[in-house]
């Protein structure tokens, strides 16, 4: 994540606006033009267009529906901004279920887009960082038994303490630039004693 004093620039990025053509989308287009973002408006289906190549997705929380997105709820591969008109809880909840990283309230005036892009960028990075961290932790958890087994194996093989055996694993990992879990797994593979499942 960038330092708090750096100025975010969106020059040269592109946004897909999933909303029927309307004075709101015109206001969005004017705001995007000022900050150097090229925007394309599409409604209701993306057919003929692909989500690939866009840096941001803005979607209509009022008339949007699940089938507009080629991904499962909450798994948008780019930062998303919900365009909210009706504050009826059903619509707001639907927008949340699609993992809206930020929102803009309609009617769209002459401000709000820049702040929404900054917030969506940060929220998206946080979401992705969390996902990858959780994946990593889950893999390590799954491999814990293998790590204990490999440590025990080295203790017996070299007649050393648990600490020294673990230090061997760690050293080998650094030398080979692999994770300790990987090293443990390959030691067990050599001896055919893999227990836990590896990875996700």
């Amino acid at each position: 994540m960038s330092d708090s004093f750096s100025t975010p620039s969106f020059e040269g990025t592109s946004a897909l606006i999933l909303h029927r053509a309307h004075s709101n989308t015109e206001a969005l287009a004017r705001q995007f033009a000022r900050i150097g973002v090229s925007a394309v408006t599409v409604w209701p289906e993306v057919e003929g267009h692909s989500f690939d190549g866009y840096d941001f997705l803005l979607f209509d929380a009022d008339m949007g529906y699940d089938e507009q997105f080629p991904w499962a709820a909450g798994e948008a591969p780019i930062p998303t901004i919900a365009l909210i008109g009706s504050e009826a809880p059903g619509r707001v909840t639907w927008a949340v279920s699609h993992g809206a990283d930020a929102q803009l309230l309609k009617p769209i005036g002459s401000s709000g887009v820049y702040a929404a892009l900054v917030i969506a960028t940060h929220a998206f990075r946080r979401r992705k960082a969390l996902e990858s961290r959780v994946g990593e932790l889950a893999a390590r958890l799954a491999n814990r038994e293998n790590l204990a087994e490999a440590t025990a194996l080295l203790m017996v093989r070299h007649g050393v303490s648990a600490g020294a055996a673990y230090a061997r694993l760690r050293r080998q990992a650094m030398e080979e630039r692999r994770s300790i879990d990987d090293i443990a797994l390959s030691i067990l593979n050599e001896t055919g004693t893999v227990k836990g499942s590896h990875g996700l």
Partner: peptide
């Protein structure tokens, strides 16, 4: 360049 998007800092 009010949003400092094009300015070389």
């Amino acid at each position: 360049d009010p949003f400092l998007t094009r300015t070389n800092l």
